[in-house]
């Protein structure tokens, strides 16, 4: 067991123990933070590892959430199957977009996905006989009772499962190929890497995880609205991943928890906390590009691929 695993284990135990000593409010905050952590860590895989700087990630969360809620609402499908259907739909849409953006790079990719995300948001708003538009689609909860603890633990287990799944994927050759594609796509192709396959694969996996996040978010908050797809929400996810460390999946998840937790702690400062968020985003990127987590725990939370590369360099 490496030190990196030890740190992660400590964090996990702390997360598991938190509801025992923190009040219900922090349980609630934690349950929402898992949603962002799922998004930030899967986006880190997409953007940090694979270099696919997509602005459509939150749109996939909305797609999963809306699809599963609408299926249950209109066709009476049990929630469990609705969730699976929502995730599958997000993966199919992810495959489609991954295929569409094959030829796009850098800012063009960012703008293309931004436009798709905007079109999707406008459809959620305009097709109100189906989605209830900005009124928001009310989603029945999964667990009854007053406590948010079931959601807290369910969300945490989803997050852990997602992190394990992504780490497992990266431990195979896929991780190496993804980084190779990001750093120099032409060279990777010349070396015999099927770049098309892996680029689409990473979109499928991360979109499915975003969809999963959305299907969890809806029943917990009780309402889905098109505003979950607005650009500032995407910006928040980016900020979380960047601050935590865009090249470390657990780092991005921790970044999400830190950013969301801090924004709750500093509520009394009103608008200033978002000013600080913007400033933090610039400062972290300016002075600590691998995220504050990577700097604090430099060798601990680096993915093996990076580690190996650093070792060689």
């Amino acid at each position: 067991m490496t030190r990196s695993h030890a740190v992660q284990a400590v964090l996990l135990i702390a997360a598991l123990a938190l509801p025992a000593w923190a009040g219900p409010y922090w349980v609630h905050v934690g349950a929402i933070a898992w949603y962002y952590a799922l998004l930030a860590s899967s986006w880190a895989l997409l953007a940090g590892y694979a270099g696919q700087f997509s602005f459509a990630h939150v749109a996939f969360a909305a797609l999963g959430g809306y699809a599963s809620a609408l299926l249950s609402l209109h066709f009476g499908i049990p929630p469990g199957i609705g969730v699976v259907a929502g995730i599958v739909l997000a993966m199919v849409a992810g495959a489609l977009i991954g295929w569409l953006v094959l030829r796009l790079t850098g800012p063009y990719l960012a703008l293309f996905t931004l436009a798709l995300s905007e079109i999707f948001r406008l459809m959620l708003v305009a097709e109100q006989q189906l989605t209830r538009g900005s009124l928001g689609l009310q989603v029945p909860g999964w667990f009854g009772g007053e406590s948010d603890r079931p959601y807290y633990y369910f969300g945490l287990s989803l997050l852990v499962a997602a992190l394990l799944l992504m780490a497992g994927l990266l431990r195979t050759r896929v991780g190496l190929f993804l980084r190779a594609i990001r750093d120099d796509e032409g060279a990777a192709r010349a070396a015999g890497v099927n770049t098309t396959l892996y680029k689409i694969l990473v979109f499928v996996v991360t979109s499915g995880l975003a969809g999963l996040a959305g299907t969890y978010y809806g029943p917990f908050v009780g309402i889905l609205t098109p505003s979950m797809v607005i650009l500032p929400e995407m910006g928040l996810v980016i900020a979380m991943a960047v601050i935590g460390g865009i090249e470390s999946l657990p780092g991005a998840a921790v970044g999400a928890v830190i950013v969301y937790g801090l924004s709750e702690l500093t509520r009394e400062y009103g608008q200033w906390r978002f000013v600080l968020l913007g400033l933090a985003l610039i400062l972290v990127q300016r002075f600590a590009q691998n995220g504050i987590f990577a700097v604090l725990e430099r060798p601990l939370l680096r993915p093996p691929a990076v580690e190996a590369e650093r070792g060689r360099g």
Binding site: P24, Y25, H28, V29, V221, G222, I223, E264
Partner: peptide, 17 residues
């Protein structure tokens, strides 16, 4: 912020904190 999720979090915070 005009956001339902923020509203529910705010309500929980006010009530429990």
């Amino acid at each position: 912020k005009g956001q339902p999720a923020e509203g529910s979090a705010a309500a929980v915070r006010l009530i429990t904190q």
